[in-house]
Design a protein around this nucleic acid. Structure first.
Length: 107
DNA sequence: CGACTGACCAGAT
DNA sequence: TATCTGGCCAGTC
Protein backbone atom coordinates (compact mmCIF):
# COMPACT_ATOMS: atom_id res chain seq x y z
CA UNK A 1 0.00 0.00 0.00
CA UNK A 2 1.62 3.19 -1.19
CA UNK A 3 1.36 6.01 1.27
CA UNK A 4 2.47 9.56 0.72
CA UNK A 5 4.27 10.86 3.74
CA UNK A 6 3.22 14.28 4.94
CA UNK A 7 5.90 16.93 5.32
CA UNK A 8 5.78 16.46 9.08
CA UNK A 9 6.25 12.72 8.71
CA UNK A 10 9.20 13.31 6.42
CA UNK A 11 10.69 15.60 9.02
CA UNK A 12 10.35 12.85 11.62
CA UNK A 13 11.87 10.29 9.29
CA UNK A 14 14.87 12.45 8.45
CA UNK A 15 15.42 13.45 12.06
CA UNK A 16 15.29 9.85 13.24
CA UNK A 17 17.99 8.94 10.74
CA UNK A 18 20.61 11.46 11.83
CA UNK A 19 23.77 9.51 12.78
CA UNK A 20 25.31 9.53 16.23
CA UNK A 21 27.37 12.62 17.04
CA UNK A 22 25.85 14.59 14.17
CA UNK A 23 23.52 17.59 14.25
CA UNK A 24 21.41 19.49 11.71
CA UNK A 25 20.26 23.09 11.54
CA UNK A 26 16.59 24.05 11.33
CA UNK A 27 17.00 25.21 7.76
CA UNK A 28 18.88 22.10 6.75
CA UNK A 29 16.25 19.86 8.26
CA UNK A 30 13.54 21.82 6.46
CA UNK A 31 15.35 21.31 3.17
CA UNK A 32 15.90 17.60 3.83
CA UNK A 33 12.19 17.26 4.57
CA UNK A 34 11.33 18.87 1.26
CA UNK A 35 10.34 22.24 2.71
CA UNK A 36 13.22 24.57 1.76
CA UNK A 37 13.12 27.96 3.41
CA UNK A 38 10.82 26.77 6.15
CA UNK A 39 13.15 26.75 9.15
CA UNK A 40 10.48 28.32 11.33
CA UNK A 41 8.10 25.55 10.45
CA UNK A 42 10.63 23.06 11.79
CA UNK A 43 10.70 24.97 15.05
CA UNK A 44 6.92 24.79 15.27
CA UNK A 45 6.89 21.06 14.67
CA UNK A 46 9.58 20.39 17.25
CA UNK A 47 7.85 22.58 19.78
CA UNK A 48 4.74 20.43 19.73
CA UNK A 49 6.55 17.11 20.17
CA UNK A 50 5.42 15.23 23.28
CA UNK A 51 7.88 15.46 26.16
CA UNK A 52 8.39 11.71 26.05
CA UNK A 53 9.20 11.55 22.34
CA UNK A 54 11.95 9.19 21.24
CA UNK A 55 12.90 11.48 18.34
CA UNK A 56 16.34 13.10 18.69
CA UNK A 57 14.97 16.66 18.82
CA UNK A 58 18.17 17.73 20.59
CA UNK A 59 20.14 17.28 17.35
CA UNK A 60 18.50 20.35 15.86
CA UNK A 61 20.39 23.59 16.43
CA UNK A 62 20.36 26.98 14.71
CA UNK A 63 22.49 28.08 11.77
CA UNK A 64 24.79 30.00 14.12
CA UNK A 65 25.83 26.70 15.66
CA UNK A 66 24.05 27.37 18.93
CA UNK A 67 21.22 25.84 20.90
CA UNK A 68 18.07 27.87 20.30
CA UNK A 69 16.98 28.09 23.91
CA UNK A 70 17.85 30.91 26.27
CA UNK A 71 21.31 30.36 27.79
CA UNK A 72 20.96 29.04 31.30
CA UNK A 73 17.43 27.74 30.82
CA UNK A 74 16.59 24.18 31.82
CA UNK A 75 15.68 23.42 28.23
CA UNK A 76 19.07 24.58 27.01
CA UNK A 77 20.95 22.56 29.61
CA UNK A 78 18.86 19.50 28.86
CA UNK A 79 19.63 19.75 25.18
CA UNK A 80 23.33 20.33 25.84
CA UNK A 81 23.52 17.23 28.04
CA UNK A 82 21.70 15.11 25.47
CA UNK A 83 24.12 16.26 22.80
CA UNK A 84 27.14 15.46 24.95
CA UNK A 85 25.70 12.03 25.67
CA UNK A 86 25.44 11.63 21.92
CA UNK A 87 29.10 12.51 21.43
CA UNK A 88 28.80 16.15 20.46
CA UNK A 89 31.03 18.75 22.11
CA UNK A 90 29.02 21.64 23.49
CA UNK A 91 30.80 24.66 24.96
CA UNK A 92 29.68 26.38 28.13
CA UNK A 93 28.09 28.98 25.92
CA UNK A 94 25.98 26.32 24.19
CA UNK A 95 28.06 26.48 21.03
CA UNK A 96 28.68 23.56 18.70
CA UNK A 97 31.31 23.43 15.96
CA UNK A 98 29.25 22.91 12.83
CA UNK A 99 32.36 22.15 10.78
CA UNK A 100 32.87 19.09 12.90
CA UNK A 101 29.38 17.96 13.82
CA UNK A 102 26.92 19.13 11.18
CA UNK A 103 25.50 16.40 8.97
CA UNK A 104 27.30 16.63 5.64
CA UNK A 105 25.84 17.26 2.18
CA UNK A 106 24.82 20.81 2.77
CA UNK A 107 26.87 23.71 3.90
C1' DC B 1 -8.73 42.38 8.82
C1' DG B 2 -4.07 44.10 10.81
C1' DA B 3 -0.45 43.47 14.44
C1' DC B 4 2.59 40.60 16.80
C1' DT B 5 5.15 36.46 17.93
C1' DG B 6 8.27 32.62 17.27
C1' DA B 7 13.08 26.14 19.28
C1' DC B 8 14.79 30.48 11.99
C1' DC B 9 18.04 32.36 8.18
C1' DA B 10 21.13 34.90 4.90
C1' DG B 11 22.88 39.06 3.41
C1' DA B 12 24.15 43.83 4.19
C1' DT B 13 26.06 47.39 7.06
C1' DT C 1 31.07 41.05 16.70
C1' DA C 2 26.58 43.26 16.70
C1' DT C 3 22.37 45.00 14.49
C1' DC C 4 19.27 45.53 11.10
C1' DT C 5 16.35 44.09 7.06
C1' DG C 6 13.57 41.24 4.51
C1' DG C 7 12.13 36.59 3.80
C1' DC C 8 9.49 32.65 5.59
C1' DC C 9 4.57 31.50 7.63
C1' DA C 10 1.28 29.33 11.11
C1' DG C 11 -0.86 30.82 15.41
C1' DT C 12 -2.99 34.02 18.35
C1' DC C 13 -5.48 38.12 19.67
Amino acid sequence: MIHEQSATERLYTVLASIPRAKVVTYGQLAQLAGMPGRARWVGQVLKQLPSDTTLPWFKVINAQGKISFPPGSDAAERQAQKLRDDGVEVSEHLRIDLRQYQLASLS
